[in-house]
Nucleic acid binder design. Structure first.
Lengths: 233, 233
DNA sequence: ACAAAAGTGTTAGCCGTACACCCATGT
DNA sequence: ACATGGGTGTACGGCTAACACTTTTGT
């Protein structure tokens, strides 16, 4: 530690991360919540969090927590915002960095999650959360919507292979509106981010729907994909 | 401090804010940089920063630093991102929250700024900065562009009264392209966020251009204002 | 009269939306 | 044959980009 910095060292503030974990299952966008195991507010629902260690970045801390909880590696992460009001956590002065995480529900370890008293909630059924976690979730969801507007998301949420109807239902959930099937298909395919497989899903229609998968390229867009998805108030 | 939190208290990490201060002067978008007054890297150019005190949020810290430096209150602030790699600052383990700040150059205290060894740099003339400040600036500028795409900015950067040409030049600077004068005018006025004054600026043309000011309402948009401003790579 | 910026009008093309319509096939 | 989701085609409207054109007034 440089000696010029030393006089500021006596600040007593804890550093944490909180993860907003989104998943998609049974045609529903879901959120993974935890029964809090320590006081204060023990037993109430909250986002999963963890302390940032001295030797790691906030991103590393979030990855560590997520791997610990789900058993998955290489989870998609995006910084949402810092929450740092000194009194936001009644248990102490905690600055927290919020992260969005997208995971494939079917791939993670259900045993681990059960062990930690966690449960997946549909977006419409989220209970009241502790502290300022409601606000964190609100900002996080807004950020997810923004991402879905500029990027074609689903790579991290859907199974390896999926139909365009599956993808459309995911977007319907995120924006809480019904996208037109024909227009959605044309728009998505025009992005050339998907690759059609020689295999059909016969479970939902007689004709069968082709499976698609994401191409192995970066999908970065700087223009909105779905102009109408975000509405004026 | 709750006793469940106590065992994590021994983390030695400093908390800081760094401010990316944008201004607009002589038809140029500018950035306020500082000659660093402490080691390491004393004397080199950097963003202005400050420690977060125990009793304040990151936002409060940024506001305090900005007021201290410029003499202004109620500065527009927006959180950009947290930078928390443990080795990002050679002087110590410092987690920093980056903030964008927009200020009116003509209103702030030039004496204070001089006193702190600060200087305004045109965007095209920014020198190499210390540590990861280059990266912070890059992310911050991208964020400013995003904001300008969704919001009509200028309220915090331009003088109280300004012509549409002034506003257009600001946008030209931000997006590094020439907006069509006629189309820009029509688009901006259609937003109904500006109010025309009964006064003209005669300094730039014989005919004179009406001054405008921002209406005293929120200007929040969720759809892009300038669709073409952001280009694919 | 001319130049130069302010401001208005016009047109062509793109894109999103709505919706009609064909396709394939299990019952 | 018909119902159902898969998939394609089309037509209208709104918006943008390009640019021609008018206005104003100091020199």
């Amino acid at each position: 530690m440089n000696r010029n910095y030393e006089k500021y060292e006596d600040v007593k503030r804890l550093l944490a991360v909180d993860c907003i974990i989104f998943g998609y299952e049974n045609e529903q966008l879901k959120l993974l919540l935890f029964k809090r195991i320590i006081e204060p507010s023990k037993g109430r629902w909250s986002l999963i969090g963890g302390w940032i260690k001295e030797s790691e970045s906030a991103e590393d801390a979030a990855r560590r927590v997520l791997t610990y909880i789900t058993g998955l590696k290489d989870i998609y992460l995006e910084q949402v915002k810092v929450f740092s009001e000194p009194d936001r956590d009644p248990g102490g002065n905690v600055l927290t960095v919020a992260f969005n995480a997208l995971i494939r529900i079917e791939k993670h370890s259900k045993e681990l999650i059960k062990e930690y008293g966690a449960r997946w909630f549909a977006i419409s059924e989220i209970p009241k959360l502790i502290f300022d976690h409601d606000e964190m979730l609100k900002v996080a969801f807004e950020k997810l919507r923004m991402k879905a507007t500029y990027d074609l998301i689903g790579r991290q949420l859907l199974p390896e292979k999926f139909t365009l109807t599956h993808l459309r239902r995911l977007y319907n959930e995120i924006f809480q509106k019904e996208f037109d099937p024909g227009n959605f298909r044309k728009k998505v395919l025009s992005l050339k981010l998907l690759e059609r497989l020689d295999e059909k899903d016969m479970s939902e229609s007689k004709k069968g729907a082709y499976y698609y998968k994401f191409k192995d390229v970066e999908n970065s867009h700087l223009e909105p994909i779905f102009k109408s998805s975000i509405k004026h108030e």
